[in-house]
């Protein structure tokens, strides 16, 4: 415990490339819009105007925003999948799929260090840690399911060819009502993910002082070259 917090030299590492950051914020924005409009569609407000239908269109507008945001969300996700094959080593696909033993060891380490706080060894990974990676892997699965169910039920009300590509999925889960249920339940996965995600970013910045929050804005992380023994 000789070295101090300030004495070890700090290296600046470029972690998140511009396309990754762009994806992240567009994704965040579209998910917020989708959750809000989606919730309203599932349980609309009681607006008792006592007027005729032709004078209003607010619910149609909410639905339009939801569908438009759905398209943005989907193609942004497709782009991110592509970037998983051409981006730098922190954004490549193999980070997210836990195929190596080292990844599982790190997952357990992160759980002990950051969640249970019973271990004091800092995690050295520069990009996401392994637990974050596997969590994002699950969110990608949720993205796929949300796109399949969303566009699947949207296909019936659209003349466009694109949503029709997803209509095969709906009968597999038993029909429109079941697909709608899955779509609705998964919305809560996104909401709870967002709460934990934002908290953990603050937490890591707060305790690890590596500039995690701003790394998704500028792409840089500040890494102490000798990180040892501090808790």
């Amino acid at each position: 415990m000789e070295e101090t917090v300030h004495k070890s030299p700090i290296k600046i590492k470029y972690i998140w490339e511009l396309p990754v950051r762009f994806y992240h914020w567009l994704n965040a924005l579209s998910i917020v819009v989708l959750c809000i409009t989606g919730y309203i569609i599932g349980d609309p407000f009681a607006i008792q105007k006592g007027t005729e239908a032709y004078m209003n269109y607010w619910f149609g507008t909410v639905r339009f925003v939801h569908f438009a945001a759905g398209y943005i969300f989907f193609f942004n996700f497709v782009f991110r999948l592509y970037w998983g094959f051409v981006g730098n080593k922190y954004s490549r696909w193999y980070n997210y799929v836990p195929l190596k033993k080292a990844q599982w060891v790190e997952i357990w380490d992160v759980i002990k260090t950051d969640i249970l706080q019973i271990k004091c060894k800092p995690i050295h990974s520069l990009g996401h840690n392994a637990l974050a990676d596997i969590t994002y892997f699950f969110t990608f699965i949720a993205f796929v399911l949300q796109s399949l169910t969303g566009f699947g039920i949207y296909a019936a009300m659209s003349n466009s060819w694109f949503p029709k590509l997803f209509s095969w999925f709906v009968p597999l889960v038993g029909g429109d009502l079941a697909a709608r249920q899955i779509h609705h339940i998964l919305m809560w996965f996104f909401i709870i993910f967002a709460i934990i995600h934002v908290y953990l970013v603050f937490y890591h910045d707060y305790i690890e002082r590596r500039g995690v929050t701003s790394s998704m804005i500028g792409g840089w992380k500040f890494v102490e070259s000798e990180e040892e023994g501090e808790c």
Partner: peptide
Amino acid sequence: RPNFDAGLF
């Protein structure tokens, strides 16, 4: 259906 789009429930 027009009532649905108008949000009149």
